[in-house]
Design a protein around this nucleic acid. Structure first.
Length: 267
DNA sequence: GTCCCGTATC
DNA sequence: GATACGGGAC
């Protein structure tokens, strides 16, 4: 596949079948940032209603910076990976305190913020400021593997990056990446996930019966029904003693839960 | 069971 | 490089 032909396919598909999301219609950098936090490991369809409520309630970083973690987690409840909510709030505080309330435009500055790694720093710079970043995530990976590594296994991202750089539209990287992601998402519906052939592909551990599940139940109980002692928490959630203590200990260590005089709450 | 627009931590 | 981290949809 020639890269010129490849680019035509991706862009024409985007023109005809490109997805519409609120964070694509409204290009406010804060909205883009919120969407990228929520989209880390969470499907777009699930994110949409959360994003709408979130932006209604906290339309700017300085607003979220003033919110309590309890309110933030309550709004996040159901999205999963609750630490992301805390990172987003901490990032909002940093933006309010050190960036004049403005979402930074450079990937290097974004990368310094809590909860923002190699992917998100590049993606936010690209989508918020149309910066021609070179980055990869699951849908982009699927697209390049599908078109350029059809018969190969154990593909390294390092092999894909040169192609991403070569095919990137420096004039409009934002639309180009939207197109890539949309094509990748579509691809996975009609073929076995090409990303399985990536060297970086890993299966997720079982959720049912996991500590992850227990932790989620603890957070959900504390934000929906308020602070309480351990026995009340046990009664509310039906979690066994050892699992409950294990979860509480881990959450306490991550500052996701606080404890005073035997009463647990969101810090 | 599979998948999800990854990050932090070791 | 490996592992933990939610939760819902299909």
């Amino acid at each position: 596949m020639k890269t010129g032909e490849f680019k035509d396919i991706i862009l024409s598909n985007y023109k005809e079948n490109g997805r519409v999301f609120p964070w694509r219609t409204n290009l406010d950098p804060w909205g883009i940032m919120v969407s990228e936090f929520m989209l880390q490991q969470t499907q777009t369809e699930r994110v949409v209603p959360y994003w709408e409520r979130w932006m209604e309630r906290w339309p700017a970083p300085v607003r979220l910076a003033q919110a309590s973690l309890e309110d933030v987690l309550r709004e996040w409840s159901g999205l999963g990976y609750n630490r992301r909510a805390r990172y987003l709030k901490e990032t909002a505080v940093r933006i309010a305190d050190s960036h004049g309330g403005i979402v930074p435009a450079s990937p290097d500055q974004l990368r310094e913020l809590p909860g923002i790694g190699t992917y998100s720093s590049q993606a936010i710079a690209c989508f918020a400021y149309n910066y021609p970043a070179v980055f990869i995530e699951t849908n982009i990976r699927a697209v390049y593997i599908h078109f350029f590594f059809q018969d190969k296994a154990g593909i390294q991202d390092a092999e894909i990056f040169p192609l991403i750089k070569e095919t990137l539209d420096p004039e409009n990287p934002r639309e180009w990446y939207w197109g890539l992601m949309d094509y990748g998402a579509e691809l996975k519906k009609i073929t076995p996930n090409p990303s399985r052939k990536s060297a970086h592909y890993t299966r997720q551990s079982r959720f049912e019966g996991s500590l992850r599940q227990v932790r989620g139940a603890v957070i959900r109980s504390l934000v929906s029904d308020g602070p309480c002692d351990r026995d009340t928490l046990k009664a509310r959630t039906g979690i066994g003693d050892s699992r409950l203590d294990e979860a509480l200990s881990a959450l306490y260590g991550e500052s996701m839960v606080a404890e005073k005089d035997g009463i647990y709450r969101i810090p």
